[in-house]
Write a protein that binds this DNA or RNA. Structure first.
Lengths: 201, 201
DNA sequence: CCGATTATTGATTGACGAGTCAATTAATGG
DNA sequence: CCATTAATTGACTCGTCAATCAATAATCGG
C-alpha cells in the first residue's frame, strides 16, 4: 500500500529530472522508468498514460512551491517582511534544483495543449498575484497595489526565464535582489508624488 | 531560383503557424508541408532536417524583430522617445500574430537542446539589453542604467509569458503600458534621492 | 520544339515509442 | 508453509514519423 505512494513519488521525481536533463517534454516513458529504476510498464500501471504523469509532476512542483511560500509567510512578520518572504520563496533553491526550472518552462508549453496544465498554471498566477497584493496594500494603498503586483509577478517570471536558459548560473540570489530592488523603487514612487511622466493611461 | 526563396519562406511561415496552432514543437514535417501546400519531401530538400527548419523559423522571427526595432528607433528622436520605441516594438502586433508568441515560447525550450537556438536567444537578449542601456544612460546615468535595463528586459519577457498563455487576450497594449509605467517609476527613483530602502547590495 | 536542368512529388523504409498484457515475482495473512 | 492478492516485469503490437529516393513535372535556354 505504502509501496504505491513511494513508487509514484519515485516516478514523479524521475520525470522532473528527466525533463530537466533533456530540456524537453520529448522524453520517453522508458527513460523515465529507467531513471526511477523500474520497468516502463509500471509507469503506465500507476499513471495510465504519459500526460497524466506529466500533470502529476506539475502538481508536485506546484504543491512544493505552495508549501514553501506558506512556510516562508508563516515565519514573516508584517507586510514588508511577508513580501520579502514571497520573493525569497519564489527563488528558493529547490526551484532551481534537478532541472526544476527546465521542467517548469516545459510546463508552460504543456499548458498550451492541456487544459488541466493551463488550470494549474493559472492557479499559480492567481496565488502569486494575490499574495503580492495582500501585502502591498498596506504599504502602497489599495489602488497602487494591483499594478505593482502585476509588474512584480511578471518580473519574477521573466527572471525565471533567464535562469532557465543560463543553466550554468545556478545563483538565484541576484534574481531575488532585482525583484527586491524593483519593489523598493515601486514603493518609493507611491510615497513621493509622481514627478512628471505619470502615464496614468 | 527565386522559386527557392519563395518556397523557403512559405515553409518557414507554415512552421511558425503550425507550432503556434499546436502549441508545441511536436509537429510533423508532414503537417508543416501540408500547411505550406507542398509535399513533405520538399521541406527536407530545402532544409535538410526538421531541426534546421525550426532554426530557420527562429532566425526569421528574430530577424523580423530586429527589423522592427531598428525601424522604430529610426523614427524616434531622443532617448525617451527611443525607449518608448523599443518597448513598443517588443509588443508589436506582428509578435502576437499567427501563433508567434507560442512559437517564441517553444524556441525557449528548443534553446535547451540546441546550442544554435541558445546562441540566437542570447543574441536577442544582448540586443534588447544594449538597446535599453544605450538610451537609459542619458536619462538615468551610467550606473543606474544597467540595473534598470535588466529589470525592464525581464519584465518584458515576463509579460510575454503571460500573453503566451492567455491566447484569447490578443491585446498587447496593456503589456506595453506596464513596461512604460515601470520605466517612469524607475526614472523617478533615480531623479529623487532613494528614500530609505535602498538595497544597493 | 527539344534536351537539360531544376523543382517537386509521394511511396517507402527503418526506427522508435506509447500503451497492452500475460506471465512472474514478492508480500501478506492465516 | 500455502494460498491469495498485490506488485512488477518486459516482450509485443501497432501506429507514427523523420528521412530517403527514384520517378515525374515544370522551366528554360537555345
Amino acid at each position: 500500500m505504502a509501496k504505491e505512494i513511494e513508487r509514484r513519488r519515485d516516478l514523479i521525481a524521475a520525470t522532473i529530472r528527466e525533463i530537466g536533463a533533456q530540456g524537453t517534454l520529448n522524453v520517453t516513458v522508458g527513460q523515465i522508468a529507467k531513471r526511477a529504476g523500474v520497468s516502463p510498464g509500471l509507469a503506465f500501471h500507476y499513471f495510465g498514460d504519459k500526460e497524466a504523469l506529466f500533470l502529476a509532476a506539475m502538481r508536485w512542483i506546484l504543491r512544493d512551491y505552495g508549501l514553501q511560500v506558506r512556510a516562508a509567510l508563516a515565519a514573516a512578520d508584517g507586510p514588508a517582511e511577508r513580501l520579502d518572504a514571497v520573493i525569497e520563496a519564489n527563488f528558493a533553491e529547490s526551484h532551481f534544483r534537478d532541472g526544476a526550472v527546465a521542467a517548469w518552462l516545459n510546463f508552460y508549453v504543456l499548458a498550451q495543449r492541456s487544459t488541466e496544465a493551463a488550470r494549474l498554471l493559472a492557479l499559480y498566477h492567481r496565488r502569486l498575484h494575490s499574495n503580492l497584493v495582500h501585502d502591498l496594500r498596506p504599504l502602497a494603498g489599495a489602488e497602487a497595489a494591483a499594478g505593482i503586483a502585476v509588474r512584480l509577478a511578471a518580473l519574477i517570471d521573466g527572471l525565471y526565464l533567464r535562469f532557465a536558459l543560463a543553466r550554468d548560473a545556478v545563483e538565484a540570489a541576484p534574481a531575488a535582489a532585482e525583484v527586491r530592488a524593483a519593489l523598493s523603487i515601486e514603493l518609493a514612487a507611491v510615497a513621493a508624488p509622481t514627478p512628471r511622466s505619470a502615464a496614468r493611461s
